[in-house]
Amino acid sequence: MTPPDANVFSETPLVRRKRREEALAKWIFCAMSALMILPLVLIIGYLFERAWPSLSLGFLLEVPTRGMRAGGVWPAFVGTIYLVFLSLAVSAPIGILAAVYLNEYARDNWLNRLINLAVINLAGVPSIVHALFGLGAFVYAARFGYSIISASLTLAIMTLPVIIASTREALASVPRSFREACWNVGATRWQTIRSVVLPNAISGILTGVILQVSRAAGETAPIMFTGAVFFKAVQKGDLFPYSLHDQCMALSMHLYTLSTQVPDVQESIPFATAVVLLGSVLLVNAAAIALRVYLRSRKKW
C-alpha cells in the first residue's frame, strides 16, 4: 500500500473559494425563483383588499343596475363562459388534429416548414390585429354581424396556434420506441396514434387546451371589435340569455368599461369584477392541474 498521504484530495484555497462562489450562486438563483411568488401574492392580495366591500355570492349572480353602479356581473360572467367554450370548441379539434398531422404524418418538406413558420408567426400576432381580422372576416365578409359567433371565431383563431404548438410538444414527448413497437406488429399509423400516441399524450394536450381558457377569457380587444357590448339586459340567474347571433357582455370588457367609461362607480366594483375574472381563470387552471396529475398518475413509464 502507498503510505496514506494526508494532503491527497484535501481542499486547497482555490477549492474553498470555488465553494464560496458556488454557495453564492445557488443562493442567488434560489432567491430569484422565490421572487416569482411575490408579484402573484401582491396582485391577489391587493385585488381582494380593494374588492372586499363588494364581494358576495350575490355579486356573481345579480345583474348590473343603476347604469352599472350597483348590482353584479352575471351577464358578463355568462357571456365570458359562452365565448370561451365556443372558441375552444372550434379551435381545440382543429388544433389537435392539425398537430397530429404535423407531428405524426407530415414529412420534413417545404410545406411542413411553411406551416410551422405560419403557426409560430400566428402565435406572435398581437390580439388587436386578430380583432381587426375578425371584424373584417366574420362580422362583414361572413355576415355574422356583431355577435357571439364572430367573437368566438376570432378568439378561436387567436388560440389556435398555441394549441397546435402545445399539442405537438405533447405528442413529441411520447417515446419513439412506443411507436416502433406498434409499427413492428403491423399497426397502421392511425391505429398507432389511436391506441398508443394519443392516450399517452392526452394529459399534455388537455393542459395546453385548458391553459388557453385564461387567454380567451382575458382578451378584450378581439371581442370588443366583434361582439361584446357594454350592456345587455338579462334576467338574474338566466343560464341561456344569449343566442349565437346576439351580442353579449363579457367580464374583461365589463372591467374595461367600468373603469374607463362609467363615472362615479363605487371603487370596489371593478376590483370585484377582476376577482371574478381571475377566480374563474384560476379555477379552470386548477382543474387543469388536477386533471394532469390524475392522467400522469396513470402513465406507467
Partner: peptide, 21 residues
Amino acid sequence: IKILGKNIYDPDVSLIELRKS
C-alpha cells in the same frame, strides 16, 4: 474505498480535488 491510500468517503475529501485526480 481508498484511492492513493486515502479513503475517498472521508469528510475532509474534496469532491472537486478527487474528480480532478
